[in-house]
Nucleic acid binder design. Sequence first.
DNA 1: AACGATCCCTGTTGGC
DNA 2: TGCCAACAGGGATCGT
Length: 289
Amino acid sequence: MGTVTGPSLEAFLPELPEVEITRRHLEEAMVGRRLERVRVTHTRTARYNATTGEVESRLSGRRVDTVGRHGKFLVIGLDDGYTMVAHMGMSGRFSVAAKTDEEAPHTHFVAVLDDGAEVRFIDPRTFGFIAVFDEDELSDSALSRLGPDAWVDPPSVPILMRALNGRTAPIKALLLDQGPIAGLGNIYADEALHLAGIHPLTPGGGLDATEVAGLLLAIQKVLSEAIESGGTTLDDLAYLLPDGQAGDNLSRLGVYARTDEPCLKCGTPVERIVVRARSTHFCPRCQAL
DNA sequence: AACGATCCCTGTTGGC
DNA sequence: TGCCAACAGGGATCGT
């Protein structure tokens, strides 16, 4: 992983690998710790059933038992049975900081731990959120509608076949949906489809067992490589991993953000189309319809 | 039910 | 050079 120095601006879009790396940092910092004081300073950061003040009071004084993840959601178990659920949206990042560290712009959440460290949530575009749910609220939340986690609980070929059966929507859209499989965002959906040689507009129900098996393998490969290399840090915004480092996965991308550049497998220029209002990159030769 | 369009938000970029 | 519209995207919501 590259350490960022000076004024260079780097970003990453938090998808499963980036959320998993964040989870590991937060687990190290938070498990067994008590949240002494919690501050939520942006109304959009507290979402669903709770105001900023309610999130603060539900978290303050609680001890963290577990830090888990399902898809792109962080799932933090508290000692009173409540669950803190966090989503980093598109611009959110967590930072584990010392009390004396200067607060970054757009810091909307600060938890002071009983060892003096602070867990901060920084989110310029406020697409992310932090919620605290009891059991009923949790079972009624978006978490309950997620498919199996693409990394720790990947669906088998028959399970994914069944989820895609009869679906006419493009496979790209279904990968982003989080229902058939949870954790892929725009970058890794494009990368997995490219690696599997599947055109993004292929109707989900039109994939045969061989193609679904290949897609699942491709998903495992792009996710594991991204996690190992520290996630994908793009160079247009200033978002970093919790320890201030940038991920190194950018150079591994085959199609994402490579419009008109040669496909690394065959040299054909990468094409960009829009699917469900999301930019979609693919090689027209390796991924023929 | 499934699908697609629209909205939220702001730092950055590209065109004039 | 300066201004402003366009762009980026995860998930919620709404209309068909």
